[in-house]
Amino acid sequence: MTRLSHQEKIHNILEEWRLPLYFSKPSMNHLVSMIDGMLSFGFTGKISQIHALSFCKKHRTTLSYFLNKGAWDETYLNQITKQKTAQTIHKNARKQKEPVFLLFDDTIGQKTKPSSQAQSPIESCQYHFCHKEGKPVYGHQVVGMMMQSGDLAYPYDFALYNQSKEKSKIQMAVDMIDSYVKRTVSTYILCDSWYTSKRIIEAGLGKGIHTIGALRSNRIFFQKASENKSNSLFPIFQWKKPTL
């Protein structure tokens, strides 16, 4: 396969990760095309764009077949990606003397709702409430965990949320925390009010990680054997301009 110069650099990095031990040569070529296409200017998430932007000489359907029916296991790919991400972030944290933040959030990849007559609707698409739109939208919802330290931030793990399954978004985040291997660097969980929950906080404490997150006004907490809502604390807090 004839590659462009930057594609050769991508291939060399994948070789350093020892992916050829787990992926065939055709699979490696597809991975290089996918990475090149997704990193190209103008990419919006379509397979046809990956094929065009990466200047792949093979027919577009070969890439679709690789994703849908190809004989490859993404387990090692996910494992090595998380390992390299953690190594890079921890190295940067030690160099800049900064803490590591584990950021949790979810996002929706909105799709066009198919006709009721469609024979092959997009797999796993459902209606999810979109805070930006203020209404349910049709598409895929993904829960993701990013790692950040100083001026570096990389995706660490992600999972597709399916309403028909028993695992909630909170449980998916807990699983990601459980799989994370904490190093000696100071580490904190950073999240919005949706993920600030007892289970997230306890999962973090089990790894020696504290949680920083927004708190909903209707959250119930117990203090000195009395039950309170978090909004009862609002009058106690006073805003002070930070000294930089």
Score class of each variant (00 low, 15 high):
1 M>Y: 02
3 R>L: 14
6 H>I: 10
6 H>W: 14
7 Q>G: 15
10 I>W: 00
11 H>D: 15
13 I>L: 10
16 E>R: 12
17 W>G: 11
17 W>Q: 05
18 R>G: 07
22 Y>K: 11
23 F>W: 02
23 F>V: 08
27 S>W: 03
28 M>D: 04
28 M>C: 00
32 V>K: 04
32 V>W: 03
34 M>T: 14
34 M>F: 06
36 D>V: 02
38 M>G: 07
38 M>Y: 00
42 G>Q: 02
43 F>P: 05
44 T>Y: 08
46 K>V: 01
47 I>F: 06
49 Q>F: 07
51 H>A: 13
57 K>N: 09
59 H>T: 04
59 H>M: 10
61 T>M: 13
63 L>A: 03
64 S>V: 01
64 S>P: 02
69 K>V: 00
72 W>M: 10
76 Y>N: 13
77 L>Q: 10
80 I>V: 12
81 T>R: 02
81 T>A: 05
81 T>G: 08
85 T>A: 15
85 T>S: 08
87 Q>F: 12
88 T>V: 05
89 I>V: 14
90 H>Y: 14
91 K>W: 09
92 N>Q: 15
94 R>W: 08
94 R>F: 12
98 E>L: 14
101 F>H: 09
102 L>H: 07
105 D>R: 05
107 T>I: 12
111 K>H: 05
112 T>N: 06
113 K>L: 11
113 K>P: 00
116 S>N: 13
116 S>Y: 08
116 S>R: 15
118 A>N: 00
119 Q>N: 02
120 S>E: 09
121 P>K: 01
122 I>C: 03
122 I>E: 09
123 E>D: 05
125 C>F: 01
135 K>E: 04
135 K>R: 13
137 V>A: 01
141 Q>G: 08
142 V>W: 09
145 M>N: 06
146 M>A: 14
148 Q>A: 12
150 G>I: 04
152 L>D: 13
153 A>C: 15
154 Y>Q: 15
156 Y>G: 03
156 Y>D: 06
156 Y>E: 05
159 A>V: 13
162 N>T: 12
164 S>Q: 14
167 K>A: 09
170 I>T: 14
170 I>F: 01
171 Q>A: 14
171 Q>I: 09
175 D>N: 07
177 I>G: 03
179 S>P: 00
179 S>M: 04
179 S>K: 08
179 S>R: 05
180 Y>R: 03
183 R>I: 10
184 T>E: 11
184 T>R: 12
189 I>H: 00
190 L>N: 09
192 D>Y: 00
193 S>V: 11
198 K>P: 05
198 K>M: 07
201 I>D: 05
202 E>P: 04
206 G>Y: 06
207 K>Y: 06
208 G>Q: 09
209 I>C: 09
214 A>K: 02
217 S>G: 03
217 S>K: 12
219 R>D: 02
222 F>A: 13
225 A>D: 15
234 F>C: 12
234 F>P: 00
235 P>W: 11
238 Q>G: 03
239 W>N: 11
239 W>E: 14
244 L>D: 10
244 L>M: 11
244 L>H: 07
